[in-house]
């Protein structure tokens, strides 16, 4: 564990709770992509199956349980409790266009052809693109609530911090996982446009709105 990973994990946790709290406090999930949230739930469930087979640490297990539970709770709030506020007209990204190719790639390019390893690989690939429905939704409506911007910034920062963690681990531990690194780069690159808008607008107290 190094500082980049720890802050990355905390940033990830913060993102999920900012979103949950936003939905809970406002009793509304307007502007949030339910499809991205379903993909994240799928990411956590397929990645953390090793909860049952492989104990690493209390921290590790606890975080996994929190990530699964909080994301499933978000999906529940969006599709059941506050379904009336869900903006499905703008959430039109076809997730099968992500899940199917990513599933195929996980079968073809993995470290080990075993069920758990293929699911882990699927999860890593899927996570890298799971935010696309949310970004697509913002591009359709042309704007995002400030709290949603904070959520996205924390969520994007998490993987960027993991990239620093992987650089650190490569130099100091000789550790290198090509699948995680490539997927992590793709994931971070997808946020670049958003990061630019966040830094130039939201940080200066303006609402995130896209140029017409």
């Amino acid at each position: 564990m190094n500082i980049f990973r720890l802050v990355g994990d905390l940033s990830h946790l913060l993102a999920i709770f900012v979103l949950l709290l936003k939905i809970w406090k406002s009793r509304s999930c307007a502007g949030v992509s339910g499809k991205s949230q379903i993909l994240f739930a799928l990411v956590f469930i397929t990645r953390y199956l090793d909860l049952f087979t492989n104990f690493i640490s209390v921290y590790n297990s606890l975080m996994k349980v929190i990530f699964i539970a909080s994301t499933v709770a978000t999906v529940y709030l969006m599709y059941i409790k506050f379904k009336a506020t869900y903006d499905s007209n703008h959430d039109t990204f076809r997730i099968e266009f992500l899940v199917v190719p990513v599933g195929g790639l996980a079968f073809l390019v993995n470290h080990d052809f075993t069920p758990l390893e293929i699911l882990w690989t699927f999860s890593i690939y899927l996570e890298s693109v799971a935010i696309l429905p949310q970004l697509f939704m913002i591009s359709k409506t042309g704007e995002a609530e400030t709290i949603t911007s904070h959520y996205l910034f924390a969520l994007g920062s998490y993987r960027a911090l993991y990239l620093l963690n992987w650089i650190y681990r490569y130099y100091f531990e000789g550790y290198f996982d090509l699948i995680a690194v490539v997927a992590g780069c793709v994931q971070t690159i997808l946020y670049c446009d958003f990061f630019y808008l966040y830094i130039t607008k939201v940080m200066w107290g303006k609402k995130l709105s896209l140029p017409a």
């Binding site: 590790n60 080990d112 550790y175 699948i179």
Partner: peptide
């Protein structure tokens, strides 16, 4: 370093 090492990450 094998792939298993990565699985201590979240």
């Amino acid at each position: 370093s094998n792939s298993r090492d990565s699985h201590d990450e979240l």
